[in-house]
């Protein structure tokens, strides 16, 4: 069995009277595609926000690659190797696609004010490497032709791809995707699926929130189901689909 990459232990998160997460524990293994599903408002995005340091959990802890994640320090989480996309796309709209990906390299590069102004050899080399890597990644997600367009002028599907490229630019060990197929048509979803499989093949573990059940069931090695902030099931897709609690959470029909 492969090793554990992320372990969430009894995570709690409340918003006033609303419980977004209750005692959620889950384990993600190195190299797998792990699905996180559940009805709207189940707490999936909240879990992402706790994981990436945007929300401070009310209880529990996260162990990533053997290290305890510090709450409320998103930039440190990124440095440790967790990258994410957002359900409601968050690109740097008035920067070009290229620049968006270049920002993703920030956490792996070092140039400061003096380097920027003096253009010493190390800085120019680093800058060239940033540019090269960003080009590669735009190519990788198939939007190289939009490199010089403003992010906000990209089509919806391309924006989702750009967000993935920007996340990959941080050299993550774990890539967390929040509903990447939302709003995509069948063709777009199919090519997204290929993209995610390719990312996994390159050795990056993927945590996937998705509404498209077919996509999740076809793509994921294991799936956890959240309902009203609680994990009600965690298993391989074929068994999750048959779990009575899951079927009930989805009101019968749509999951099977």
């Amino acid at each position: 069995m492969s090793s554990t990459l992320l372990e969430a232990r009894a995570i709690d998160k409340h918003f006033g009277g609303v419980t977004a997460l209750r005692n959620v524990s889950l384990t993600i293994r190195q190299g797998e595609i792990y699905g996180l599903i559940g009805p709207n408002g189940a707490g999936k995005t909240s879990f992402f926000n706790v994981l990436t340091g945007l929300y401070h959990p009310d209880g529990g802890e996260l162990i990533f690659a053997g290290e305890k994640l510090q709450a409320s320090a998103p930039h440190k989480v990124a440095k440790l190797g967790i990258a994410r996309t957002f359900q409601n796309i968050r690109l740097f709209g008035n920067m070009t696609a290229m620049e968006n990906v270049m920002v993703g390299r920030h956490v792996r590069t070092h140039a400061g004010v003096f380097g920027a102004v003096l253009h010493d050899r190390r800085t120019t080399r680093e800058e060239a490497a940033i540019r090269r890597r960003a080009e590669e990644l735009l190519n990788y997600v198939n939007i190289a032709d939009r490199a010089d367009d403003l992010a906000r002028h990209l089509s919806y599907g391309d924006q989702r791809r750009l967000e993935i490229a920007r996340a990959l630019a941080t050299d993550p060990k774990l890539l967390a995707l929040d509903e990447p197929a939302a709003g995509m048509n069948g063709t777009e979803t199919a090519s997204l699926r290929e993209l995610i499989e390719g990312i996994r093949k390159d050795g990056i573990t993927v945590l996937l929130i998705e509404h498209d059940v077919k996509l999740v069931m076809g793509l994921c090695d294991r799936v956890a189901v959240l309902d009203y902030g609680e994990k009600i099931c965690e298993d391989v897709p074929s068994l999750v689909q048959k779990d009575p609690k899951v079927i009930e959470a989805y009101l019968g029909g749509s999951i099977a």
Partner: peptide, 22 residues
């Protein structure tokens, strides 16, 4: 530069900038 891009990233979306490791 790397610094200038980080400034603009913060202007454009602070939360996304944080999640990029800035």
């Amino acid at each position: 530069s790397r610094i200038g891009r980080a400034w603009v990233a913060i202007r454009e979306d602070e939360i996304a900038a944080k999640s990029c490791g800035i």
